[in-house]
Design a binder for these strands. Sequence first.
DNA 1: TGAATATATGAACAAGTATTCATATATTAT
DNA 2: ATAATATATGAATACTTGTTCATATATTCA
Lengths: 96, 96
Amino acid sequence: MTLNELKAIQLAELFSALSDANRVRIISTLLEKEMNVSDIAEKTQMSESAVSHQLRGLRQMRLIRGRKSGRQVFYSLDDDHVKKLYLMGLDHVKHG
Amino acid sequence: MTLNELKAIQLAELFSALSDANRVRIISTLLEKEMNVSDIAEKTQMSESAVSHQLRGLRQMRLIRGRKSGRQVFYSLDDDHVKKLYLMGLDHVKHG
DNA sequence: TGAATATATGAACAAGTATTCATATATTAT
DNA sequence: ATAATATATGAATACTTGTTCATATATTCA
């Protein structure tokens, strides 16, 4: 039952990926539908560069994935875990 | 459906609380049963001071709660959300 | 090929966070 | 009251992380 060190680090990294309000807003935006970088930037009121940097971290943690189409990249949530983590967190914040 | 700024910040703070390997190990330790500070320190191989500092943050996020008994304080997970968040994160890390 | 557009990246600085050490508070026992 | 034990806290330092600006890569169109 005891957590090994590698898993502890990986878990911490996963939660780190969601530990910034801008990234949370990006995830929230992607809950509805896939979106390209400039749309995400507009929706979240961030610079495209900042968005791109943040997307990179989210990609590395496999929270989102990108689908390239021409010169645009459409991002969406990687799997259902992400949505569940987000919603459970929101639930805790709301009535925790 | 759009997340307001306050909620985004609160969510980020919640995930921040889980974004450190030492805190994750503390949570993991408390999954089994409530435990006092020095036991947590021993289990996680941290100094008691470091544990106490981390417990403070976890308490503030209402991820854990303390029950005072004499001069000891027994900590346990605050509610079921926390366990679910942890387990879902672990699931993502394992087969994500 | 060259210009325009979408995204990504590197480096530098600013801001936030964890750990350590010293000290403080609280509780119990003598 | 004093000593001993458990936990908490403050300040300082070291570390990590986010943002910005400049530049790079990739794709499309003329």
